[in-house]
């Protein structure tokens, strides 16, 4: 099967979420001054995660996260760390915008989102949209902060 077909298969998408939940990627903080950090504790009553990123010369060199969260929060953040690492902040912003469109049930470019399309149905459970966006909002804020401090 083509990659795009795989990413349309509900069984595969379910496996992606379960795999990222059970074995989250980049799941530890380095807490170095080279990283910018966002603690997302007040976004909801339950999820409590911290995202940190190392951004140099407009390139996201590393993203990490840690914390306590549900399947959707954990998997969506884990996928995000893989997807955005190595991207320029401009590329990342385009991916993030597409991701936010997808979880709001709007038009989006699936090619840019790769494994993150596993979250494409979350908008049907409106109470979980905040779960699917917690880590993504953190990196979005970190990128904006890095641009402001450099601008």
């Amino acid at each position: 099967m083509e990659n795009q077909d795989l990413l349309n298969d509900p069984m595969i998408l379910r496996e992606i979420i379960m795999d990222h939940y059970k074995y989250p990627h980049n799941h530890s903080l380095v807490s170095s001054t080279a990283y910018r950090s966002r603690h997302m504790a007040s976004a909801s009553c339950i999820d409590d995660i911290t995202v940190e990123a190392k951004i140099n010369d407009g390139v996201i060199e590393d993203i990490r996260f840690d914390g306590i969260a549900c399947t959707i929060s954990t998997a969506s953040t884990s996928i995000m760390t893989e997807l955005l690492r190595g991207k320029t902040t401009e590329e990342a912003k385009e991916i993030i915008a597409n991701y936010f469109s997808m979880v709001d049930g709007l038009e989006y470019n699936a090619d840019l989102l790769e494994e993150a399309v596993a979250m494409k149905n979350v908008y049907k459970q409106a109470n979980r949209i905040k779960c699917a966006t917690i880590g993504w909002r953190a990196i979005d804020q970190i990128i904006k902060e890095s641009e402001e401090s450099n601008g």
């Binding site: 509900p10 998408l13 379910r14 979420i17 379960m18 939940y21 059970k22 399947t71 959707i72 979250m119 149905n121 979350v122 049907k124 459970q125 979980r128």
Partner: peptide, 10 residues
């Protein structure tokens, strides 16, 4: 189960 809890999204 974890599997059934995730399946509600598909």
């Amino acid at each position: 189960t974890l599997e059934n809890a995730v399946s509600i999204f598909f």
